[in-house]
Amino acid sequence: MRVWSLHPAHLDRIGLVAGWREGLLAQAALRRPEGGYGRHPQLERFRASTDPLAAIGAYLELLADEADARGYRFDRSRVVAPRTGDPALVDAQLVVTTGQLAYERTHLLAKLDARSPADAVRLRADPLRAHPSFVVVPGDVAAWERTHPRTARRRSRR
Rank of each mutant, 00 (worst) to 15 (best):
109 L>W: 05
42 Q>D: 15
103 Y>W: 15
108 L>E: 15
73 R>N: 10
45 R>M: 06
78 R>M: 11
71 G>D: 12
72 Y>L: 14
60 L>I: 02
34 E>T: 10
80 V>Y: 01
49 S>W: 05
99 G>S: 07
123 L>K: 08
99 G>Q: 06
75 D>V: 04
101 L>M: 11
57 G>T: 06
120 A>V: 02
120 A>G: 07
96 V>A: 08
80 V>G: 00
53 L>A: 06
119 D>F: 06
126 D>R: 12
100 Q>A: 12
65 D>W: 04
85 G>L: 05
124 R>L: 03
33 P>C: 08
99 G>A: 05
42 Q>S: 13
38 G>S: 08
104 E>M: 09
57 G>Q: 03
108 L>W: 08
106 T>D: 15
79 V>P: 00
60 L>N: 02
130 A>C: 05
41 P>K: 03
36 G>C: 04
47 R>T: 08
47 R>H: 12
103 Y>P: 12
79 V>G: 04
65 D>A: 09
36 G>W: 08
47 R>D: 10
73 R>L: 13
53 L>T: 12
94 L>D: 11
122 R>E: 13
124 R>E: 13
127 P>H: 09
103 Y>R: 13
122 R>W: 09
105 R>I: 04
53 L>G: 11
79 V>C: 02
78 R>I: 01
74 F>A: 05
126 D>Q: 14
88 A>V: 05
113 D>E: 14
64 A>V: 06
55 A>E: 10
89 L>Q: 13
39 R>C: 12
76 R>C: 04
63 L>T: 02
98 T>Y: 01
114 A>M: 05
84 T>H: 06
92 A>E: 12
125 A>K: 05
53 L>C: 06
127 P>F: 02
78 R>H: 07
56 I>N: 03
117 P>V: 00
123 L>I: 05
115 R>Q: 15
111 K>V: 13
114 A>Q: 12
117 P>Q: 00
70 R>C: 10
42 Q>N: 08
82 P>V: 02
84 T>S: 12
31 R>L: 12
125 A>S: 11
76 R>G: 12
92 A>F: 04
102 A>R: 14
97 T>W: 00
32 R>Y: 13
77 S>T: 15
48 A>E: 14
117 P>H: 00
122 R>A: 14
95 V>N: 13
40 H>F: 10
126 D>Y: 07
40 H>T: 10
119 D>V: 03
99 G>H: 06
51 D>Q: 09
119 D>K: 08
42 Q>R: 07
105 R>Y: 06
84 T>F: 01
109 L>D: 14
113 D>G: 04
87 P>D: 01
105 R>V: 09
55 A>K: 05
123 L>E: 11
45 R>T: 12
37 Y>I: 01
41 P>M: 01
45 R>F: 01
